[in-house]
């Protein structure tokens, strides 16, 4: 995959521009590439949306054509599913709880592992990767035993803990380089000024590394929003299932409700898009804040 071909018009940028990097440059190459990227992701999404607007009987017969009578049946069906809003609320609670808990634990861990160089760090990093590798299916049975013994089955707390345990290695590994990128001189300056370590961490490290924190938080939220295996296994009552489990309901051994699956997929993703719009702004602001001296 070619990235950008060196161009003769490299000098076209005006050094006087305050932020030339964000301005339009090299559009002859980057522009078309952006459109290619757009197509690669837009076409499948278009397909998802189109399928969600079909009658079940039309899905197979009009696979690559746009000729069909659109219907909102799938959406009406999905929206009238009893428990859709409970499921959405469950998803929200689980994802928010997991994100908060994961960040609470992983941010300090990422910082600690970024600032200490010792054998323990090496071992810690290695172990995190190993944990990241353990198949999720292998965790279900042992966790079921723990939660059963602690009365956490059928509780949001159980699923949140399981999701958090799943995502801590991921979040810690991801956060570490962002803390690492903060110049140590900044911290030393603060500590010479008498600031305590937690205070330095809170008022200097966190604001500067906020790009990383926001991105990691978004990713953790996304992952826990879509998590399905733990939710289905640790909730014993269907009334507690989150959206991801409702989605699985569209696929059964006896048939797949394609429009329903796609419609639910679209509905499930909308809150994610809202969250993304929010963090997207955060990231842009992070740029200027990141230049703190």
């Amino acid at each position: 995959m070619s990235i950008v071909i060196p161009r003769a018009d490299a000098t076209a940028s005006a050094p006087s521009s305050p932020q030339p990097r964000r301005k339009k440059r090299f559009e002859p190459v980057a522009g078309p590439l952006r459109v290619v990227l757009l197509l690669i992701y837009a076409v499948p999404i278009l397909f998802i949306v189109l399928t969600s607007l079909k009658q079940p009987g039309d899905v197979i017969s009009s696979q690559s054509s746009f000729l069909f009578t659109p219907t909102l049946d799938a959406y009406t069906n999905v929206l009238s599913t009893s428990g859709l809003f409970v499921a959405m609320q469950q998803s929200l609670v689980i994802a928010a709880g997991t994100t908060a808990l994961t960040l609470l634990v992983a941010i300090p861990a990422g910082y600690g592992l970024a600032r200490v160089d010792s054998r323990i760090t090496t071992i810690g990093l290695g172990l995190l990767i190993v944990l990241q590798m353990v198949p999720q299916t292998a965790n279900v049975i042992p966790l079921y035993q723990i939660f059963g013994a602690w009365g956490l089955l059928d509780q949001n707390a159980g699923v949140i803990i399981a999701d958090t345990a799943l995502l801590i290695p991921f979040a810690t590994l991801l956060l570490r380089p962002f803390f690492r990128a903060v110049p140590e001189a900044l911290e030393e300056a603060a500590s010479i000024d008498g600031a305590s370590i937690p205070r330095t961490f809170w008022s200097i490290m966190l604001p500067i590394a906020r790009n990383g924190v926001a991105t990691t938080g978004t990713l953790v939220f996304l992952l826990s929003w879509g998590e399905f295996l733990y939710a289905v296994n640790f909730f014993l009552s269907p009334g507690n299932y989150p959206l991801s489990a409702l989605l699985a309901q569209q696929v059964s051994a006896f048939g797949i409700n394609w429009p329903g699956l796609m419609a639910l997929g679209v509905i499930t993703s909308i809150p994610i898009l809202i969250l993304f719009t929010f963090t997207y702004r955060l990231l842009r602001e992070g740029l200027t804040l990141g230049a703190v001296k």
């Binding site: 837009a42 996304l222 699956l261 898009l273």
Partner: peptide, 14 residues
């Protein structure tokens, strides 16, 4: 970027 996030958020079954 929004489209890409949308894709990443969709479950593999979709």
């Amino acid at each position: 970027l929004g489209l890409m996030v949308f894709i990443w958020a969709l479950p593999p079954v979709v």
